[in-house]
Design a protein around this nucleic acid. Structure first.
Lengths: 198, 198, 198, 198
DNA sequence: TACTAAGCGAGACGGTACGTCGAGTCTTTGG
DNA sequence: CCAAAGACTCGACGTACCGTCTCGCTTAGTA
């Protein structure tokens, strides 16, 4: 699933090894550039200069821009894989999932770029399908075997759609909003709120 | 809101007027090309040739590719507003809304381009924000004054998110799926199904 | 030989006649523009605007830029056709010829454009060959039947070459220089000058 | 004087060096294209393709078409200086000079381009002014200290003018014609010819 | 007097070339 | 074998100018 930066087959370590410093700088620079300009608007040369290195250092690691984009996302998500289902309560699990996904993508401003890439030509989309499938899997684990198994895929689509909307709008919804969305998806009653509150 | 191809304010018609034939052909060609390849993948030259005209005819009307993209989307959405609320039943209204939106956008293959544009730089996004607001308004009219007025905005976000997902995936959901999604958003029980059916 | 601005065959006079004012303004503007930028550097649009008229007024009179160029030269030469041979003295005739040709072309700064056109693709060159042939003819009339008939064509080439050089250099030679050149071409002794003079 | 393709002053060779192969191929291709179509008629793309390279390779070396034209002429004239004066006989020297200049320029078909350049805007003209000055110098060395020193500059103008005419006309004059021209310029009797010969 | 054919100014039209930019690859010197 | 620099090919961009066309108007000369 993850796009590792190396493609050397099994050579134990011939010649000078790659510097992790360079790789890290590239991923950070790429992240910033993609967040600012989107997949197509980002310029490889700019990423290289920002990382104080050269284009070739990029192409030695990733075959093309699309793959770099994917790797940068991977990097951003590293350590922030969706927490696995706790299986305590579907509502709590979903709530944490939604909150977490929105958190990491708005923090890095990658939301729009992420959605844009999902809507791109298949070749680009394919790179992110892995991520999506990952999310779907996690959500399935949260719902399977519960009372909410019925219409599971549609529930999942609703959750993912809701996340996408927040990413596109670059808007972090309030706790109550997330809670409401989750309750609706699960077919529970939405939480009470004082009258007059929307 | 709309990106009209002409910017001459009140000139009393000096010189040869622009041919509507050419403008229309260009918008159609642009729509097709953008739908097929996205904003950045589309080629201006191809659009011009498809419309059996020249690049200059394009640049005489719109200053750059981005603006042309906006205008093309504008053109596509003209005359395809969502049906207004029937106020018979919220569920029926929502069902028709979702079905209709997905219908028109998958028919023209504009789904991905639409979402991509929403996630683009503000200049492009602005064109579609009007469309979105339109949709939102319609949805509000469907829900306001009903039992589902509580959490209305979140319900709307769920509906729109669901539509977006279908557009991105270029997948037309089944009738049952739409029905399920609508019932969930409204907090009704999902329809009964024989056991074993997912 | 001359390139008249009209190509209407024998129609006596139907419709609105062309305005001489416009034709003249165009020729003047063309002359200035060609002098400043050469045949290829000149811009039709600029000529039209300078003459306070439109491109179409040009193309109604002359089929293309090359022909306009030729017409402009014709116009510049009008009234300054090389004086025919006086048959008094070959030396005097030649002197007047050289002086006259240089005069008219440096006065209008057309020298470089003229030579440049002569050195252009055949299609352009053809337009000026008429002028050249005209000159050649005049020169022949000056020499034929005199003692200088021997090697006449070479003498003519020498004279024309000398004129070209002065045009290219945009330099108007002194009276003495012209006199010297003519005497040499005729095989006469150059004029005596006080020692020390170059 | 010369328009070298590189402008890097003393950089100690960073990055991949420009390939002489490409530079040479470009200059040759440019020369051929300019010779065939003149400065404005030549197409950059054609030059690049002929040299089996790309437009970028051209623009990396020379900022625009005009400069490339200059560089190409420069290249063509490198190593083709006129033979120095032999000081045996002014007539013989001049004869060899005229013959040689016409030879080299008609061989490469550069005659018209050469004259066209001389008549161009100063920026282009400057490249060839050096060449011209060279020729002038050689001619002066042939005449100075001889009986033909009187009116030397005018004699030189006649010679150069004669050469230009031949170049423009792309006509290689016969031996007799050249001999005649030289004799006239020197004020000697033209060679005897059988009656009936022009 | 009205009609009619053409000139006129403005500007759109299709086409060709320009000079620029970015992607991804290749080739140097130096570690 | 990596690193940095920069040349390399390719293909698209947006601009400029040519010569043509189509508007709404004006201006003779004829009916």
């Amino acid at each position: 699933m993850s796009v590792s930066p190396s493609f050397r087959p099994a050579a134990p370590a011939a010649g000078r090894p790659r510097q992790r410093r360079v790789t890290d700088a590239l991923l950070s620079a790429a992240l910033a550039e993609f967040a600012r300009h989107g997949l197509d608007g980002a310029r490889i040369e700019t990423i290289a200069r920002t990382a104080r290195t050269s284009k070739q250092a990029i192409y030695r690691r990733w075959p093309d821009k699309t793959t770099l984009f994917s790797a940068a996302l991977d990097h951003a998500f590293a350590g922030s894989r969706p927490d696995p289902a706790q299986r305590l309560s579907a509502a709590a699990d979903l709530d944490r999932f939604v909150r977490g996904r929105i958190e990491v993508l708005t923090a890095t401003s990658l939301g729009p770029a992420f959605v844009q890439a999902l809507a791109s030509r298949p070749q680009v989309k394919a790179v992110l399908d892995g991520v999506e499938e990952d999310w779907r899997l996690t959500l399935r684990q949260m719902l399977v075997g519960t009372a909410f198994e019925a219409g599971m895929e549609t529930r999942i689509d609703l959750v993912l759609g809701y996340v996408h909307r927040c990413l596109v709008a670059e808007r972090r919804p309030s706790d109550v909003e997330i809670e409401t969305a989750v309750h609706l998806v699960l077919g529970l009653m939405p939480p009470r709120r004082p009258p007059g509150c929307r």
